[in-house]
Amino acid sequence: MIDQTIYSIFKGGSKTYFYSTIFFPKRVKEDVFVLYSFLRKADDYVDSVPQDAEGFFDFKERYYQAIDGTITGDIVVDSFVKLVERKKFETRWVDAFLNSMEMDITKSKYETMKELLVYLYGSSEVVGLLMAKIMDLSEESYENARYLGRSMQYINFIRDIYEDIGLGRTYFPQKDLKSFNIESLDEEYTKKRPEEFKGFIRRQLETYFSWQEKAEEGFSYIPFRYLIPVKTASDLYKWTGSQINKNPFVVYERKVKPSIPNILSKVVINSITAGLG
């Protein structure tokens, strides 16, 4: 049985993840709900307006108390720590995640891709690793799992440009911006340089799709009963990328997301094609 608080946090977050996850077998689905609620709650502290740094550090402290054996009374933290222990997560992965969330408090831009990859490891690659552990995948899948987490995060960066600018953040290497003679991703600025902006966004999409391709090479490691929701989420993020590629300025107009009917229809299609395979 999934706790109502955990259920609400997940459902109130990503529709793509939520409606893909409900097609996992019951036990895996419950574990993913616990994982996502922990990740989402940490992220919400640093993404709130105004930013709740104190709330984040209190949350982080509760996690480490729980790891040391204290029952904190925070259902999200306590449930997650039980999951950590049962699935034997590497706690250094969770450390890396919390460190990246803390970077959102102290850091607003990244000069190079190498620098950004440090953030991406903790904020997304370890999520792929944690999911691999939940599904009991072999360690041979771990590199692909990292790429899947990284690619999904990167398309979110592209999709959420307008939102992140409002938070004072730019999640792209400054070297890439400079290579297109762009000094800012503010809408008013980029609309005066439309071709440069379109070129920049399409370059970032190339990066996303290349990482996504490497991620999908690992789908062969995923058992059929788990593959459908994973592939569905992956396909829907590719759909998001294709929509932005058609019109890069759409990122200022709306948050590009598939509708619930589109998500469910993709599940059906993947179920049929996977069964045929």
Rank of each mutant, 00 (worst) to 15 (best):
I22N: 10
I22Q: 10
F23C: 07
F23W: 07
F24A: 10
F24P: 05
K26H: 02
K26V: 06
R27G: 00
R27W: 02
K29F: 08
D31F: 05
V32E: 03
V32K: 04
F33P: 11
F33N: 11
L35A: 04
L39C: 14
L39R: 04
L39Y: 00
R40G: 00
K41E: 11
A42Q: 05
A42V: 06
D43S: 02
D47F: 02
S48Y: 07
S48A: 15
V49H: 12
P50D: 08
A53K: 12
G55L: 03
G55N: 10
F56M: 06
F56E: 05
F57S: 05
F57T: 03
F57Y: 15
D58C: 02
D58E: 12
K60S: 09
K60T: 03
K60M: 01
R62C: 04
R62H: 09
Y63F: 15
Y64Q: 07
Q65I: 02
Q65H: 03
A66I: 08
D68I: 04
D68S: 15
G69K: 01
G69V: 06
T70V: 15
I71R: 11
T72R: 09
T72K: 03
G73I: 06
D74I: 09
D74F: 11
I75A: 12
I75C: 13
I75V: 15
V76Y: 08
D78R: 12
V81L: 13
V81P: 00
V81Q: 08
L83N: 09
L83F: 14
V84R: 13
R86Q: 11
R86A: 14
